[in-house]
Design a protein around this nucleic acid. Sequence first.
DNA 1: CTCAAAAGCTAATGATATTAGCTTTTGAGC
DNA 2: GCTCAAAAGCTAATATCATTAGCTTTTGAG
Lengths: 194, 194
Amino acid sequence: MPRMGLSTQQVVSAAADIADTDGFGALSLAKVAARVGVRVPSLYKHVGSLDELRCRLGVLGATELGEAIRDAAVGLAGRDALRACCRCYRDYARAHPGRYAATQYRFPATSPLGAEFAARSGELLDLVLAVLRGYALDGEDAIHAARLIRSGVHGFVVLEELGGFGLPTELDTSFDKAVDIIEAGLRSLSTKEN
Amino acid sequence: MPRMGLSTQQVVSAAADIADTDGFGALSLAKVAARVGVRVPSLYKHVGSLDELRCRLGVLGATELGEAIRDAAVGLAGRDALRACCRCYRDYARAHPGRYAATQYRFPATSPLGAEFAARSGELLDLVLAVLRGYALDGEDAIHAARLIRSGVHGFVVLEELGGFGLPTELDTSFDKAVDIIEAGLRSLSTKEN
DNA sequence: CTCAAAAGCTAATGATATTAGCTTTTGAGC
DNA sequence: GCTCAAAAGCTAATATCATTAGCTTTTGAG
């Protein structure tokens, strides 16, 4: 009966650690309870359900990722900014695989956290659009370009995490080249009048 | 007691249908058993575990995807081949989201299916490399390029499926443009002596 | 000091995967 | 056609989870 002084934040934080070490798919209330030193049903005082916890982890990941990228891009422009952002994105995903995976969890339609997550996603998009400002793309093309960048980086990170690329060697080179190729494509697109 | 005449293939096929409709994450032996008209433990006569079933679904997806892309690329070269492959990839993932998701399931180290999956993945890579043959990339650069293409398409497909892009409008355009931008980047890379 | 709300707990329920062990069908070989 | 072993189904049992209900104790505001 000692009062544990738990908060939703602490529960989410414990869940984040577990997801990062064991994998997002292996997250369970049992593990979280064990880690924070409480019986499983007590968690429901702080979190509505396992699914809600997953969603909260998703917004945590999106928030942290956005902050990291913002920090990484500050003071840079053009190619340098793009590279810094992409590297930062990948670094975050590798350092916090569980949180990052949570970022891709499908929110149930009922979840009120969906709005918050969408907001964070939107901020991320705005960040990418800001970085793309140097490329003279008109409004719609900028969105297409932002989607490509997000897709490319996300896809690379996911496949890497999964071991989907043969050898781990040269992965850093592949990543940098990938960014360069996209960069070159954007540049060649922005010089054409389309 | 009526003998159901079940086979591993049929179990996997039923699982594929369930995964495609309910989502890969919602796949369960209970649902599979109900669908094939058998009690849950009977499934163990055909499949070692739920996890093995997931893995089998993964190789099914990789196999089908490879076949589809091979068919789509036949008779084409260069930009046309690349576009056809990418579109086909996306089409498969949208038509069979469960099987496609299974393709990204992390195989347990013990699974003997890992080798088979790796083989299918390798075939897919070879396919992409064949398509890239028109771009005058030396061996190593071709691998980097193939990784980029795989990453970009995969990332796009996953984010799309997740609803990660705001409006559904213009997604087709975004996808085609993404492929074009990568294509342009490859072309500009292959003309430079690097 | 009081008392209501918050935070913890135990007990119970229901879903699921998995294992053990039994029964029945099937099919190959005689 | 008969036999028998393996294959394919079943029930029963176990363990792990998530979740709900309802109880107890602490905490903190007044």
